[in-house]
Computed example of a mutant assay.
Amino acid sequence: MTLPGFHLALPVDDLDHARAFYGDVLGLDQGRSADAWIDWNFHGHQLVTHVVAGHRGTAGHNPVDGHDVPVPHFGLLLTIKNFHVLADRLRAAGTEFVIEPYLRFAGEPGEQWTMFLLDPAGNALEFKAFRDESQVFAR
């Protein structure tokens, strides 16, 4: 793991569901855990799922490129190859996408593959991959 990275604490309502989703579906390695939380290796970053009784992620929406993007959300930038491997893995697991994997801003600065989904607690996640990584912050 290369530092610096980020640390995100995320509320979930059921740790077994979180373990199945983040471990089995997303394929993340589990780190330390206790009765009310689990550390995950989120591609070199620390993601911690904490049980918050009764939590259900609620997201508004913001229109982007003809889609209603869930807000708030978090996610990860991947290579195009890894993006498609993950998309295939999610499809094979029967994941219901909020926004199906597609190419956004085609031919424009910031062209990217993107997909949105919810974890079992309703937290919104986005995964994306840029055609040209130098365009991540392009205007």
Rank of each mutant, 00 (worst) to 15 (best):
M115D: 00
P109W: 05
A87S: 11
A53D: 15
E133A: 13
E96K: 11
R131Y: 10
E108K: 03
T49L: 02
L15S: 13
D39S: 10
L78H: 07
A34Q: 14
T114C: 01
H7C: 02
I99H: 01
M115F: 08
H84Q: 09
A59N: 15
A59G: 11
L28Q: 02
I80T: 15
D119G: 08
V12M: 01
V98R: 03
R32L: 11
D68A: 13
G107H: 08
S33D: 14
F6I: 13
H50Q: 12
G122T: 05
P109H: 04
P72V: 00
H43K: 06
P63E: 06
G122V: 05
A59P: 11
G94S: 03
M1V: 12
T79G: 12
V52R: 10
L28F: 14
F127Q: 00
V71L: 03
G5V: 11
F130G: 00
H67T: 06
P63W: 01
K128D: 03
T95H: 04
W37F: 15
H55Q: 10
R104I: 10
G60I: 03
P4V: 05
F42D: 00
V136E: 05
S134T: 15
L15C: 12
P109I: 05
F21I: 02
F74M: 09
R89Q: 14
Q135I: 12
G23P: 10
L10P: 07
T95K: 02
W40R: 00
R89M: 07
D35M: 08
D35S: 15
H43V: 06
E100I: 08
N82C: 02
D68C: 10
E108W: 10
D14T: 07
R104H: 11
L77I: 15
N62E: 13
G94A: 07
H84M: 03
N62F: 11
L103F: 11
L76S: 04
P72F: 00
G110N: 04
K81V: 07
A87F: 01
F21K: 00
H45E: 05
L15H: 07
N62G: 08
G5R: 10
H55A: 04
G94D: 05
A9E: 13
L90W: 08
H43P: 04
L117Y: 01
F127C: 02
T49I: 03
D13H: 14
R19M: 04
A93G: 05
P11Q: 01
A121R: 00
G66T: 02
G122R: 00
I80L: 14
D24L: 05
L76K: 01
F116S: 00
R32G: 12
A129G: 15
W40Y: 11
E126P: 12
S33I: 06
L28S: 03
P109D: 02
A93T: 09
I99L: 13
Y102S: 06
N82Y: 03
L10D: 03
T79M: 02
E126Q: 14
A59K: 03
L125F: 09
A20F: 06
D35Y: 13
P109C: 08
M115H: 04
N62P: 05
S134D: 13
L26A: 02
A36R: 10
H67I: 09
K81D: 14
